[in-house]
Simulated assay, not measured.
Amino acid sequence: MKFKKVLLPFIAGALALSLAACSEEDKAAKDAKDEAPQEETKQEATKDQEATKDQEKAVKEMQEKLAKQQVDKNKIVAVVNDEELKGVEYNAALSSIQGQMQQMGQDPSSEEATEQVKAQTLDTLVNQTLILQKANEAKLKAATTEIDEEYSLLEKQFGGEKAMKKALKSQSMDVKALKEQIADSIVFDKYLDKVAPAGKVTEKEIKEYYDQVAATSKDSGQELPPLEEVSKDIEGIIKQEQQQKLLAAHVEELKAAAKIELKI
């Protein structure tokens, strides 16, 4: 599991899922309109309308299937070191994981995936809680300016204030709840830098990583930019992978020492 962005994906994933559903419907209607020739026959217009309706129906059916995996927002889903985790947190994590699976071309609503999604969601929640508990013990905080900056970036990512509010409403969230999750994400990153600092990355490691990716890209008919143009990006990726390994080991230690009870 990737830990670096364990919190913001709850936000971004849930919002992206709702926005994707809305934009899919809007896009289908827009495409049918934009692509229609000026002298389109009535029969062709009917076919386009039917295709749009089919797309909208498919999106709606998927939303309904995914919603069935949610739990009551007040239901206690787990207890971690006497801290109760409720359905509202579970559902946020669930939406993110569902969205990530869809982005990878997987169907999170299938019968086979249902238990996998549930287990992954609970594991993610427990990991997040253990990390934040330790971060709070270390008295790590998120400044108001940091929260506002992250919120502005997220709002811009989702197309402005109106689109953001629409997405929040679809997820039964408000700005206050969103900023609380952003604060947790900032605290998480500070804790990550504290317990899993990235080491120095050598030029040899960057070159080896580049060569591996270049070989894969060549097989698929793509060509990478020159090494000097992407070396900084590769360095960041390698550092993140280093932190992932360190934090994963740290979380396992926290789990071994924690009292964890799953309720669903």
Rank of each mutant, 00 (worst) to 15 (best):
G160K: 14
K245A: 13
K232I: 03
A198E: 07
K194C: 01
V59Y: 07
K245S: 14
Q212M: 13
K30A: 10
K162L: 08
T129Q: 15
A78T: 02
K33A: 08
G99E: 00
A21V: 01
A113Q: 09
E56C: 09
L125W: 09
E115F: 04
A249T: 14
D54E: 15
Q157T: 15
M173P: 03
S220V: 04
K68G: 11
S96L: 04
V213G: 05
N74S: 12
L140C: 09
A21Q: 05
L224W: 07
K141W: 00
D219W: 03
F10T: 03
E115M: 12
V59G: 06
G159V: 05
Q106I: 14
V80E: 00
A93M: 07
Q63F: 07
A177I: 02
Q128I: 09
E39K: 03
K141D: 03
L122A: 15
Q69D: 09
V213A: 13
Q240P: 05
Q240C: 02
S172R: 07
L227Q: 06
L224R: 15
V79Q: 04
D193K: 08
V230I: 15
A28H: 05
D54P: 05
A21K: 08
A138F: 07
I260S: 04
S172P: 00
Q157E: 05
D31L: 14
L15V: 00
Q244Y: 09
F3N: 13
L66K: 05
Y90M: 00
P108N: 03
D82C: 03
I238F: 02
T114D: 02
